[in-house]
Design a binder for these strands. Structure first.
Length: 571
RNA sequence: UGUCCUGUGGUGUAAUUGGCAACACGUCUGACUCUGGAUCAGAAGAGUCCAGGUUCGACCCCUGGCAGGACAACCA
């Protein structure tokens, strides 16, 4: 039945159970609703950067349209000139495109519809379904009541149609100051649903808009703009997150009163990820207060952060596919996100050997001054990619963790008197650990067995493990940034009394260190991806300059030895 | 002391006219391996929030509880 889908085949048709939204779509197609047409949209407000939660929504909306032969739009919900900026519009488009979605010519802005929206508002006024209200924001709040107590009607609620029309037109003409008047729907102040208690449709904001400039000084609210924009675009399934569930009666009311195309709103549960936060406000706070280095800091759950971290579009689409869609609150284990990149990168990333925490070894029986080139595979998952060449010499660097003077039982790597294989090269034996005055190990003296070079007929002697290495004289130094989870608590908002999520920041989420590499990275450009063998996946950071490469660790490899260590430490 | 939504292994998602719970991640074994990776084989882990009811039979339908979430911006 259901088998593994690899990240780059995420869109492939497969036998899978349908989520509740697909069930609705299939039923709509079956009954011929909207002529069987499927049209979705992703409607971001351009007031911040997109994050992995938005990716879920994008993949859902667009994925559904693709799967059911429909269309999808990108629409900016730009009804509040106070918070929205072109900078965000640009970054959002870049991120959506990077994720792999092409909206073709269907790029829209709610602000494109301001004139139509205004006409419809006059229609509501003329139908006696909307009125101009002079109550201040505070007064209106008192009149609104509470979720458990009904509200009271505005004293302006029964103005005549003529007066309302006149006032509304004068609002548009700019005769009133900010906040002086609003246009409200006339519904039911005693409704148990707060959103039906004569909600605001238009407010006065004398501010210039990133697209319409100073043409307008009244702007529609979300509730008035969103559903009508859906309707104008012929959106059949308007998919949004759960918090809009209570808005749905209003969404439907407006469409019904305006007698326009009835889009259907469907709500799903937003994504929550363990060890991170998704709130735009909190993310902004991390950036503003300098807890991270900008929106694209590789520790951020933003799309641009993940991109810089080394995540691929395919891995994110695969992730979105794996987490599913439902209406119950959820917290996805970051391990699934990490699994998603590993799954993708394992098949794509070029292998390279790099040493991050070096321990020098000298091969005492290897001729001084000599060196040789050794064949290594570019990617064992794709042998057709061929070989790369790695320099070998008398003086090498290995990972400090790959040697233990007094090894515990399950340690398979190098130790005094023990043999290991240097990957792609020879089997070596540790003869002696050289120490300084402090008793610290400064280097290892080893011997190699010339007959064990990879590929040689007698090379296949069994050893307990294979380690990576680098030829010291050939090595170049690079900067390596090791990232860990940004928060140390699964739920960062679970903070002590009087503290907030920031108290759970992980002080060790970024470690900058050096790495040594000999070959394989020449000509690598920003965001190129590699596997540093046995260590993890790394990508070239855009901060790299010629002669000073910077690598970001995307994710470590799964590490059975590390898990043994953690288990022992837990004891 | 309101309305609406939700409640299935550690996590997430399934179970399509009601037929004794499946898949993925994670965890644990073992095989294989020149990455303690990958791959392959296997295991443990829920009796479906609780209590009644309908039914030959309920995760699914009904009733009543309980728990969690959303809603009181002229934000979206």
């Amino acid at each position: 039945m259901k088998k593994n889908v690899s990240p780059d085949k995420g869109n492939k048709e497969e036998e899978r159970s349908l989520n509740f939204i697909e069930q609705i779509i299939i039923e709509d197609i079956r009954t011929g609703k909207n002529g069987g047409r499927i049209h979705t949209r992703f409607p971001p407000e351009p007031n911040g950067y997109l994050h992995i939660g938005h990716a879920k929504s994008i993949c859902l909306n667009y994925g559904l349209a693709i799967k059911y032969n429909g269309l999808y739009n990108l629409r900016f919900d730009d009804t509040n000139p106070l918070t929205e900026e072109v900078e965000y519009v640009d970054s959002i488009m870049e991120d959506v495109r990077w994720l792999g979605y092409d909206w073709e010519d269907r790029l829209y802005y709610a602000s494109d519809y301001f004139e139509q929206l205004y006409e419809w508002a006059e229609k509501l006024v003329m139908k006696g379904k909307a009125f101009v209200c002079d109550l201040s924001a505070e007064e209106m709040s008192t009149h609104r009541g509470t979720p458990t107590r009904p509200g009271t009607e505005s004293p302006y609620r029964n103005r005549s149609v003529e007066e309302n029309l006149d006032l509304f037109r004068r609002m548009r003409a700019g005769e009133f100051a900010n906040g002086e008047k609003v246009l409200r729907a006339k519904i039911d102040m005693s409704s148990p649903n707060m959103h039906m208690r004569d909600p605001v449709l238009y407010r006065i904001i004398h501010a210039s808009h990133h697209r319409t400039g100073d043409k307008w000084c009244i702007y529609p609210t979300y509730d008035y703009a969103h559903g009508q924009s859906d309707s104008i675009e012929g959106i059949t399934h308007s998919i949004c997150t759960l918090e809009f569930e209570v808005h749905r009666p209003l969404y439907d009311w407006l469409i019904r009163e305006l007698e326009i195309f009835p889009s259907r709103q469907i709500e799903f549960a937003r994504l929550n990820l363990s060890y991170t936060i998704m709130s735009k406000r909190k993310l902004l706070q991390l950036v503003k207060e300098g807890h991270v280095n900008g929106w694209d800091d590789p520790r951020m759950p933003t799309i641009c952060g993940l991109r810089r971290r080394g995540y691929t579009p395919g891995s994110i689409r695969y992730f979105a596919d794996r987490i599913g869609v439902a209406k119950r609150d959820n917290v996805i284990d970051v391990a699934l996100l990490e699994h998603s990149v590993r799954e993708d990168l394992n098949k794509k990333a070029t292998r390279v050997m790099a040493v991050l925490s070096p321990l020098k070894i000298v091969i005492t029986n290897y001729p001084e001054g000599q060196s040789e080139e050794i064949d290594a595979v570019i990617n064992p998952e794709m042998p057709e990619l061929g070989k790369r060449s790695v320099p070998f010499s008398r003086e090498l660097l290995i990972e400090r963790d790959d040697f233990m003077e007094d090894p515990p039982k399950k340690f398979f790597r190098l130790a005094p008197g023990r043999e290991v294989r240097l990957k792609y090269a020879y089997i070596i034996k540790c003869e002696k650990a050289v120490k300084n005055d402090l008793g610290e190990i400064t280097e290892l003296h080893c011997t190699y067995d010339p007959l064990t070079r990879s590929g040689l007929p007698d090379a296949n002697r069994k050893v307990k493990s294979t380690i990576h290495w680098v030829s010291q004289p050939h090595s170049q130094e690079v900067e390596v940034r090791l990232f860990d989870r940004l928060f140390r608590k699964e739920n960062p908002d679970d903070a002590e009394e009087g503290q907030d999520f920031k108290s759970n920041l992980n002080p060790e989420s970024l470690k900058v260190t050096k790495g040594y590499i000999t070959s394989g990275i020449d000509g690598a450009g920003a965001l190129d991806k590699f596997q540093f063998e046995r260590l993890g996946y790394f990508c070239v950071d855009p901060d790299s300059v010629p002669g000073r490469m910077v690598f970001n660790r995307t994710v470590t490899l799964r590490d059975a030895w590390a898990r043994i260590g953690q288990k022992n430490a837990a004891r």
